[in-house]
């Protein structure tokens, strides 16, 4: 299975995401922001970092990158897409996911190992987990506060579209402790924490993050 990882100017975690795909047993494919081409991949990861220097708003410029018109179109047709951190911001700016990410309420960049609860194990990126399972992966963001209006939040909760929630203290002011959400079809998932940094015992807090990538591979085979 070939999983594409898009590199934007300012992406930082594209190589780690490619590595995570490889460790999970898939074939990573490097995709370039400036190409109108997904190279026939079976899924796409939008990695973390500071695309276009976070100018204007996080993800606001990346949303209009040439490759994104292909990503948005393919996502509407069911292509599994995972946005991590900056990738989550890009998915929200692209209107593939509702809401927005704003500056951390405590005004500081946060970088720590973060406990999460997987709330929904039916999406293309969380099928390897059990609902209610607790995991630890790194979290690092300056603008990771998830916000949406009350009606949107109620809809996300009511329809089971909250994929992961922060445990042990809210790190960035996200409403209702939301760490990740999915779309109605379950193929598009946005996540503020970084599972790609927790796929090997050698570095990071463990291998709890690997499940996101094995989930996609499993969903594609299934």
């Amino acid at each position: 299975m070939r999983i594409g990882v898009v590199t934007f100017p300012g992406s930082l975690d594209d190589v780690d995401a490619q590595r995570a795909v490889r460790v999970a047993g898939g074939d990573p494919v490097a995709l370039w922001h400036g190409d109108h081409d997904l190279q026939g991949v079976d899924a796409v990861v939008l990695p973390g970092g500071f695309s276009y220097g976070d100018y204007l708003r996080c993800g606001a410029i990346a949303r209009f990158a040439p490759v994104m018109s292909e990503v948005v179109d393919a996502a509407h047709h069911g292509l599994p897409v995972l946005g991590i951190c900056n990738g989550f911001q890009i998915l929200c700016e692209s209107h593939l996911l509702p809401g927005a990410l704003v500056r951390n309420d405590h005004q500081r960049f946060v970088c720590r190992d973060q406990r999460l609860r997987i709330e929904d194990a039916t999406s293309a990126w969380t099928g390897s987990y059990a609902a209610g399972q607790e995991i630890v992966v790194p979290l690092k963001n300056g603008e990771g506060g998830y916000v949406a209006d009350e009606a949107t939040l109620d809809a996300l909760e009511g329809e089971g579209h909250v994929v992961a929630r922060y445990l042990g203290g809210n790190p960035n002011g996200s409403l209702r402790d939301i760490a990740g959400i999915r779309n109605a079809a379950g193929n598009v998932v946005g996540l503020m924490p970084h599972p790609e940094h927790a796929v090997e015992d050698l570095c990071g807090p463990g291998t709890d993050g690997l499940g996101f990538f094995t989930s996609a591979l499993r969903a594609l085979v299934g």
């Binding site: 204007l56 809401g99 927005a100 704003v102 916000v147």
Partner: peptide
Amino acid sequence: TLLSNPVI
């Protein structure tokens, strides 16, 4: 479309 994000 570009200068503002109507969500926030």
